[in-house]
């Protein structure tokens, strides 16, 4: 083999085995994040293209790239407490345009999951309550049940009377059903949740 050929191999995927030998042990938080999303936040080089295209940027406390920065620097609580995590609409514009192919929408989803698990209190209490109420319905019924969700959300936020005047109209037009429609194989969804937890 001549020298030039040898560089070519190193340049491509030739030395993956060697790479594994030198694997660095990551912080448990980062390891958990990698386990959920399959990607390391160290990948991000902070160009800010995600923030530049983010539709909820102007309502958020921190630019999305800044949340990644907090995680890169180890300020996990600061990142989890940021309302950006909860305001993220999941439109995936950031993921689509990222020059490093970092799936930021997935990262934000993982942050929500990890924040919930750690009982992190953020300013976006209502958003969190909505998030949990929605997921609970999926867990119990296998699909969304609006009435149950509204009920749980209202109990969680104690904002009992907002939009109540809409209920009769929705009921009469069949937009709300009191009892949930269950799916055929509800156990499989419960199993999915169990696996995740």
């Amino acid at each position: 083999m001549y020298a030039g050929e040898c560089y070519k191999q190193i340049g491509t995927s030739g030395n993956t085995e060697e790479m594994k030998m030198h694997e660095v042990h990551k912080d448990p938080f980062i390891e958990e994040l990698i386990a959920i999303t399959g990607q390391d936040p160290a990948q991000c080089y902070q160009c800010g293209k995600c923030s530049a295209g983010c539709p909820v940027r102007e309502f958020a406390e921190d630019a999305p790239n800044r949340v990644v920065r907090y995680v890169q620097l180890g300020f996990y609580d600061k990142a989890l407490q940021s309302n950006t995590v909860w305001l993220c609409a999941g439109c995936q514009t950031c993921s689509g345009r990222c020059p490093k192919d970092f799936h930021l929408a997935q990262f934000m989803d993982a942050m929500r999951e990890m924040g919930t698990k750690r009982h992190i209190v953020t300013k976006e209490k209502k958003t969190v309550a909505f998030h949990e109420s929605f997921l609970d319905q999926i867990k119990w019924n296998g699909r969304s049940h609006e009435f149950g969700m509204v009920l749980e959300y209202k109990l969680k936020t104690m904002d009992l009377f907002k939009d109540v005047d809409l209920v009769p109209g929705m009921l009469s037009r069949g937009k709300l059903s009191i009892l949930p429609e269950k799916i055929k194989d509800g156990n499989s969804v419960k199993k999915l949740f169990k696996e995740k937890e």
Binding site: C50, A52, C54, R57, A63, N65
Partner: peptide, 26 residues
């Protein structure tokens, strides 16, 4: 400092949407 996300035309102008990552401002 920041990468531009999108350029679109609006009223004869090219609207350049970016983020100043130093100031943390869109």
């Amino acid at each position: 400092r920041g990468r531009v996300s999108k350029i679109y035309e609006d009223d004869g102008k090219l609207v350049v949407k970016g983020e100043d990552t130093i100031a943390g401002m869109p």
